[in-house]
Amino acid sequence: MTTTIAPLPLALPTPSSLRASAQAAARRGEPLVIMTTLTGCPYCDLVRNHHLLPLSRAGEVVAVQLDVRDRRSILQGFGGESTTPADQIAEWKAKFAPTVLFFGPQGQELAERLVGVAVPDFFGEYLEARLQEARKRLK
């Protein structure tokens, strides 16, 4: 008998509802971590594959991604309104990919955004500091 192991995803999930995702994260005592992404962006791949996916797989964060160019998918915003990922990102004025944002259940930002990757070697420390800040403000 052969056992087949499904490959692990190389992408973070894309939510259909920010409100539901943030409320689910808050029930776990976690902020909703949202990464803006762009196809072909090596820094997005770095943040996703070396930081957010491992933390997500370990159950340490609730992380999702939104594509800055996605104008086709319907996304429910924090207030229940319908939008697209691209329009939501524009509303947040998140102009760079990757940008990592930290939200509470009502859509409030809980920590300073991580914009881009200035120093890859220190990104994990910056991320951990923002996660600690967001968790503290969530309680």
Rank of each mutant, 00 (worst) to 15 (best):
T4V: 13
I5E: 14
A6M: 10
P7L: 08
P7I: 10
L8M: 13
P9L: 12
L10A: 15
T14S: 14
P15T: 14
S16T: 15
S17G: 07
L18K: 10
R19G: 06
A20L: 10
A20H: 09
A20Q: 12
A20R: 10
S21C: 10
A22L: 04
Q23N: 15
A24M: 09
A25C: 05
A26L: 11
R28L: 15
G29R: 11
E30L: 14
E30C: 04
I34H: 04
T36G: 04
T36D: 02
T36Q: 05
T37Q: 07
L38Y: 03
P42A: 01
Y43W: 08
D45C: 07
L46A: 05
V47M: 03
H50Y: 04
P54E: 06
R57M: 02
R57C: 00
V62Q: 02
V62D: 04
Q65L: 00
Q65C: 01
D67G: 11
D67V: 07
R69V: 11
R69H: 14
D70P: 08
R72Y: 15
L75K: 03
L75Y: 07
Q76W: 05
F78M: 09
S82I: 13
T83D: 13
T83Y: 13
T84L: 04
A86T: 07
A90K: 11
A94R: 05
K95E: 12
F96H: 09
A97Y: 01
P98I: 08
V100M: 12
L101F: 01
F102L: 10
F103L: 05
G104L: 01
G104N: 02
Q106P: 01
Q106E: 13
E109R: 07
E109G: 03
A111D: 01
R113T: 04
V115I: 13
V117W: 02
A118K: 13
A118T: 10
A118M: 06
D121Q: 10
F123Y: 14
F123W: 13
F123I: 09
F123T: 08
Y126K: 12
E128K: 11
A129E: 02
R130A: 12
L131R: 13
A134N: 03
R137T: 12
K139F: 06
K139E: 12
